[in-house]
Design a protein around this nucleic acid. Structure first.
Lengths: 343, 343
DNA sequence: CTGAAAGCGCTTACAG
DNA sequence: CTGAAAGCGCTTACAG
C-alpha cells in the first residue's frame, strides 16, 4: 500500500534519499537512514516489484527449467527444485518455474519479456534441446548437470565418475573381486540425464583398473523384472560379493526388500553401497553405505555462480563437486566361499 | 530488444494503437491490426514484463506455496506443482515457487511487493499457518486441499470421503465382510494434510454403515515395520479379504512386494484397491484397481477459480471433486474359507 | 550529504 | 477508428 512517496513525505526527504537509504547504494547520513528505515518499517513499505523491474537493472527473478513432466517426477527432482529456490532466496531472488512441456518456449518468453535475470537449468540430458537454446539466449545461465556438448556453458554437477571410482575402490579395498552395479531402468540410459552413463562407464573402467570383475544391470520399475535382474546380476561368475545401486529410491527399496527375502545377510554375504542417492539410506534396513548426491550442494553452487554471472559474464566452465563416502556398516570383507556350481 | 515504440514507428501508428491491437482490448481496424501483428512478429516484439506489471492491473504471475521441504517431497507433490504451472500457463500466467521454509514470509513479501496477482496454496494441512495468513492477505487465494477451518476460503480438493466410500462399497458389493486399510505413516495423521484422516474416518464410517468389519493400520517407511504392520492388519479377526491402500507409492510398492512374498494371490486370496493415488497402478504387478487422485483435475479447477477471482471477488466455497473408480482386475469375490485358528 | 528530474516501457482513461 | 498524454513507482545519473 505505502509507496516510496509516502515514506519520503513522512521522513521529510526526497524519494531518491529513501531509495538510497533502503538500498544502501549511496551513503546516507546515519540519522536520516535510521529515520527512513523506521518509517518504512512502520508503514510496511515494500518496493513495488514491477517498478523495480522497470527502473532497475534487476528483476530479482530467476527462471528454473526443470524436467517437469508427469512420468519422471521423482523426489530427487523435487529436492533440486527446492534447493534452487532456497539458494535463490538468500540473494533476495524469487524463482519462476518452467515445465518440460514449455521448456524452450518458456525460456524464450521469460528472456524476451525480461521477466528474469537468469536461467537455472536442472537435470540436463545428454542431448537436451534446452542447452542449445540457452547458449544462444544472451542471458546468464547455469546448468546443473552436464550435457554432451558443454561448449560455452557454465555447468555444476557432482563428479559422478569420481563417485563411481569411490564406490569401486571401497569394495576393492575390502578385498571384493567381483562386484555388480544395478543402475537405472533402460530408458534413462537411452534418453535421460548424462550422469547415469557417466557413472556406469566409470564404474566399469575403475573395476578394470583395479583388476576386478564388474557386472552391470539396468533395473526395472516392474517388480517381477527387477527381481530377475537382481538375481541374474548376483548369479554372475565369479559370484559378486559387492553390490552398488545407482538408481531411484523406489527401486533401491525394492531391491533391499528382495534381498531380505533371499536370506542374504548384509554385509556378511553381500556388501552394498548406495551411490548418488539424494535420500537417507541410514533409514534403510539395514542402513546402507552411501555416496550421497546432495541437491543443496550443486544448487547452492549454481546459484552462487549465477549471482556472479549477473555482475559480469562468466567464463564457461564445468565444475564437478567432490563426492563423499558415508559408512553405515553395509560394507565388509567378502566371505571366503567355494564358487557355487551353476544351477 | 524491440520496444512498443519500435513497433509503433515501423507501423506508422501510435504506441496506444499497438498496445490495443496486440491486447485486443479495443477494436482496431483489421488492416492496421494485421500490419501491427506482422511487424511485431518480425521485430520479435515482446512486451516488457516489468512495464506491464507497473502499468497494467495484472502481473501475470501467481505465487505457488507448496509444502516444499527436504523430508516430504514425494512425486505426488511434484505432480501437483507441475499441474499448477501447466494450468497457469493456459492463461498466460507464470508461477513463482515459494518453499515451506519461507511460507508465510514469502506470501507476505510477494503480496506486499505486488509481485503476484494471486496465491495457490498446495497440500493444505489441518492446522496450516499459511491458511490464516492467506485469509488476511486481501489477495485472491485458492487452496488445493481443505484445512480445518475453511471460513472465508476458496478450496478445491478430491472428495476423499466419497473416495473412501467408493473403496468400501466396491469391496462390500463383491461380498467382502472384513476389509483393511493401510494408511500413511503415523506422522502424517499427527501433523500432515487433512485428507488422510478424512479418508480414514470415512472408510471406517462407511464400513460400519455397510455392516462389515474394518481394520485400519498406519504404515511405516521402515520395511521391517511395514511388513509387520501388513501382517498384523491381515491377521485381524475375522480375516480381511479386502485391502485398501491409501499411502505413498513407495509404500504401496513395498506392500505389494511383501504380499508377493507371502504367496497370497490377488484377487483370489486378497482383493486390493489403491486409493487416492497419483501414480499408475496399472503397471503394478498385478495391476491394481485404483481410485485416482488426479493432480491436473484439482489444479485446473483451482487455477480456473483463481482467474475468476482475479476478475471479481469469489464467494468462499469448498469444492469437492467426484472420485472415479478404475478397475484393473485386483478385486474379486472373497473365497469361502474356514476362519483360521489363532496362532 | 541530499534533491529535482529523467526515464524505464508499458496501459488506459480522455479526446476527437 | 486512432492519438496524445498521464501515470504506474521505482532507480539512477546529474547537480549542487
Amino acid at each position: 500500500m505505502a509507496s516510496i512517496h509516502d515514506v519520503a513525505q513522512a521522513a521529510g526527504v526526497s524519494i531518491s534519499t529513501v531509495s538510497y537509504a533502503l538500498s544502501g547504494k549511496r551513503p546516507v547520513a546515519e540519522a536520516t537512514r535510521s529515520r527512513i528505515a523506521a518509517i518504512a518499517d512502520e508503514l510496511g513499505y515494500q518496493p513495488n516489484a514491477g517498478a523495480r523491474m522497470l527502473a532497475g537493472r534487476r528483476t530479482q527473478l530467476l527462471a528454473l527449467t526443470a524436467p517437469l513432466h508427469a512420468e519422471t517426477s521423482t523426489p530427487a527432482h523435487m529436492a533440486f527444485v527446492l534447493a534452487v529456490v532456497t539458494a535463490a532466496r538468500r540473494y533476495d531472488y524469487d524463482v519462476v518455474l518452467l515445465t518440460e512441456e514449455e521448456a524452450t518456449g518458456g525460456l524464450r518468453r521469460v528472456t524476451s519479456t525480461k521477466l528474469v535475470d537468469g536461467i537455472i537449468v536442472l537435470d540436463v540430458a545428454v542431448d537436451d534441446r534446452r542447452v542449445g537454446l540457452v547458449r544462444d539466449l544472451s542471458i546468464p545461465a547455469v546448468l546443473v548437470g552436464v550435457p554432451g556438448d558443454t561448449d560455452g556453458l557454465v555447468c555444476v554437477d557432482l563428479d559422478f565418475e569420481a563417485a563411481a571410482r569411490l564406490a569401486v575402490d571401497s569394495l576393492a579395498d575390502e578385498g571384493h573381486t567381483s562386484i555388480a552395479l544395478i543402475g537405472d531402468p533402460h530408458g534413462i540410459y537411452e534418453r535421460g540425464s548424462n550422469f547415469p552413463r557417466r557413472f556406469r562407464d566409470a564404474f566399469a573402467a575403475r573395476a578394470a583398473e583395479r583388476g576386478i570383475t564388474s557386472t552391470f544391470a539396468e533395473s526395472s520399475r516392474n517388480l517381477v523384472e527387477l527381481r530377475a535382474v537382481v538375481d541374474a546380476a548376483l548369479a554372475a561368475v565369479p559370484r559378486p560379493t559387492g553390490l552398488v545401486m545407482q538408481c531411484a529410491e523406489t527401486i533401491q527399496l525394492a531391491v533391499m526388500e528382495h534381498l531380505a527375502g533371499t536370506g542374504l545377510s548384509i554385509p556378511a554375504d553381500l556388501s552394498v553401497i548406495s551411490a548418488a542417492s539424494t535420500f537417507d539410506t541410514s533409514k534403510f534396513s539395514p542402513p546402507l553405505d552411501v555416496i550421497p548426491l546432495v541437491p543443496a550442494e550443486s544448487c547452492d553452487r549454481a546459484v552462487d555462480l549465477m549471482m556472479r554471472a549477473l555482475d559480469h559474464p562468466l567464463d564457461p566452465a564445468v565444475e564437478l563437486l567432490e563426492p563423499a563416502y558415508h559408512s553405515h556398516g553395509s560394507v565388509g570383507r567378502p566371505q571366503i566361499a567355494a564358487a557355487p556350481a551353476a544351477p
